[in-house]
Design a protein around this nucleic acid. Sequence first.
DNA 1: CGACAATACGAGCGACCGCTCGTATTAGTC
DNA 2: GACTAATACGAGCGGTCGCTCGTATTGTCG
Lengths: 190, 190
Amino acid sequence: MVKRQARGRQRIAEILDAALALFAETGYDRTSTNAIAARAGISPGSLYQYFPNKEAIADALSERLLGELREAHAAAFDDSAVAGLPLPDLVSRVVDPLVFFHVANPGAKVLIGEKGQPLHTGVTDRVGALLRARSPHLPDDDVRRTSTVAVQIVAALMGGIVAAPEPERAALVQELKRALTGYLAPPGGL
Amino acid sequence: MVKRQARGRQRIAEILDAALALFAETGYDRTSTNAIAARAGISPGSLYQYFPNKEAIADALSERLLGELREAHAAAFDDSAVAGLPLPDLVSRVVDPLVFFHVANPGAKVLIGEKGQPLHTGVTDRVGALLRARSPHLPDDDVRRTSTVAVQIVAALMGGIVAAPEPERAALVQELKRALTGYLAPPGGL
DNA sequence: CGACAATACGAGCGACCGCTCGTATTAGTC
DNA sequence: GACTAATACGAGCGGTCGCTCGTATTGTCG
């Protein structure tokens, strides 16, 4: 790792911005590294001064988005009151900032769906912790499975939500909440 | 369209078999047409005797899978008794053959998730018809939205189900059923 | 200023992609 | 067997991809 100057840190941010925009427009596979460099206003060579390969760009972007998501979700997750909240309220509290985040960052969805991406595992872990807090006696396997499934449902519907124009979007958010509430409510749930 | 001999029809089937296997292993984008030809035991030139381009292979495969899925689902969908079945029973009746189908045809999942693929629209339409049968007074928009969301939930979880080894797979199928039942049960649902 | 590291450039490499085309072989029909 | 259409081949074209490398410029620090 080399010593970054202020200019270098700025470049990294610009590269991630460009990658995020292009991922949203055309997906990960179909976005070339040369296109990322061009969008960021630099040459391909300069891009590779900061990232060893394309995957590293996705990883770094994933980390940055996870950080931003953590901030946006601080209130929803960290409040210890969540343990006693009615389920529909809890779902809204988690989903609303998440939708806002994805609308503000289209392109995040192509990263959150990928297993192994920090953004994916990070979100899943946080949901798991929340489940744990509400159902302390649930076996580990059930917690893992339930949080994984919940995240997959969110990821599956988020694309349509982000893409929809406004009257339809609100309806789809409502559907997402109904799906999560319905899934989490029954017997073993919370 | 040229006149196909028996050998030609056989080749088409072999090409689709090869494509299905490779799509399951490495996904659509990362599967090359030369690889499909090689797996089918023919040359790239021969492949293009039967399909004008890569997309046409996916389309034809999608059509074939939709046909097979229709057969597997005939009992679940066409029986007029579905109108009065308890929701959990109905969900099982639809989900179980679907899981069986996807386990037998891994690779179908990369096609069912794609909007515009016959496999996707075909399944969504059938679910919509089923909703209509159970809730005749539901507005068209709600039917469309609900069936779309239900299909997206299934598509999202199916990948994990197919990939999981057997004790875990059954648990995940159970989760899928819980999710669908929970989603479809509430107020406006069926 | 001089020395060194960080930043920047962009032509282009090697690999792979979807696909073509000239040619050879095989099967159906009389 | 002769003729035709269907089938089969595979080297390779034009293009894109991720990425490199030699070189030039800019910033930091003594």
